[in-house]
């Protein structure tokens, strides 16, 4: 008889995530996977494919496109969808686009609300999705430490901390009333390091922006902002310089800071993480819009 396998922490995290995904496949009528193109989305997609192996993914992907994502992200998104033969829905807030809403004209808080939060609500309503799977993790931010794995949202997509259900054992309560929906977070218990260790183990493709390279950046308030195209307004005398940088997190390029780094491979990143002590969301400018800002955004329907 062959020896029985011994499970590592990555095996257990993987199994838990697959269990959560299969609950959604079995119990929700019209689920969707929110694909944000970042490393967590890549892991989530990999896990979803494992959960339904040898079948095809039983749900579509949704990307909320603000129009300000890095060009390499969009290229990676389209290549991934094509290679895996996925059903990809891209949603933009057309009214916001017509009004010319950008981080520069409306400020990062209003821009995020209109182009991300409102756009997501629009897309979920338009397609009648009753469950949206996302890659958020509890270790990312303080207010996420108490988020449920199956998080109930009202018909208005509001998150009411007082209506969140206790989650007992792995007996998830997936029931919801008409119009209500679930946000589901299969990566709740993963940390950033777990994600990279898993990417290394499974050889998962990620956007090249995660790896150090010479990129044109400007320095603003101590943050390195990459000049990804000609739309970034430059101050008089401000000039992009080439720096060797990488990104720990990916979002809208004017709101996502790069870090100086030499880590050019997944193994380098894992080593770097073991040494570096800056939390990954520090590069996200929208988190610093005021105390408890993530909690407020979540109540309003931000993922």
């Amino acid at each position: 008889m062959p020896a029985l396998p011994r499970l590592t922490h990555l095996d257990r995290l993987e199994a838990e995530s697959i269990h959560i995904l299969r609950e959604v496949f079995a119990a929700c009528e019209r689920p969707v996977l929110l694909y944000s193109i970042g490393k967590d989305s890549s892991v989530l997609l990999h896990l979803a494919a494992r959960a339904c192996h040898p079948g095809r993914l039983p749900l579509p992907l949704l990307h909320v496109d603000t129009g300000w994502k890095f060009r390499e992200m969009i290229a990676f998104r389209d290549a991934t969808a094509r290679q895996l033969g996925l059903e990809l829905i891209v949603h933009r807030n057309e009214a916001g686009l017509r009004a010319g809403v950008s981080p520069f004209t409306h400020g990062s808080a209003a821009y995020t609300d209109i182009m991300k939060t409102q756009a997501l609500r629009e897309a979920l309503d338009a397609h009648g999705f009753d469950a949206a799977i996302g890659g958020a993790r509890r270790d990312e931010e303080r207010s996420r430490a108490k988020e449920r794995i199956f998080s109930l949202r009202s018909a208005q997509h509001r998150w009411d901390p007082r209506r969140q259900r206790p989650e007992l054992w792995n007996l998830y309560n997936t029931r919801h009333g008409p119009g209500e929906s679930l946000r589901v977070f299969p990566l709740s218990n993963w940390t950033e390091l777990d994600v990279w260790q898993y990417i290394a183990r499974e050889r998962i493709d990620v956007v090249p922006l995660y790896f150090a390279a010479e990129r044109p950046v400007v320095e603003r308030d101590g943050q390195l902002i990459m000049v990804d195209d000609g739309r970034l307004p430059l101050a008089p005398g401000e000039r992009p310089v080439l720096r060797r940088v990488r990104f720990r997190t990916l979002g809208c390029y004017p709101l996502t800071a790069a870090m100086p780094s030499e880590a050019a491979s997944v193994a380098d990143i894992v080593r770097e993480l073991e040494g570096v002590r800056v939390s990954e969301r520090q590069g996200r400018l929208i988190d610093h819009d005021g105390a408890a800002s993530m909690e407020r955004k979540k109540r309003e329907g931000y993922f």
């Binding site: 303080r142 207010s143 408890a292």
Partner: peptide
């Protein structure tokens, strides 16, 4: 401490999951 309401009251009123290694 997690949620704003709890920080203000200086009590923990829910389950928070923490990670370390």
């Amino acid at each position: 401490d997690g949620l704003a309401a709890e920080r203000e009251q200086s009590i923990t009123i829910d389950v928070a999951y923490r990670h370390f290694a």
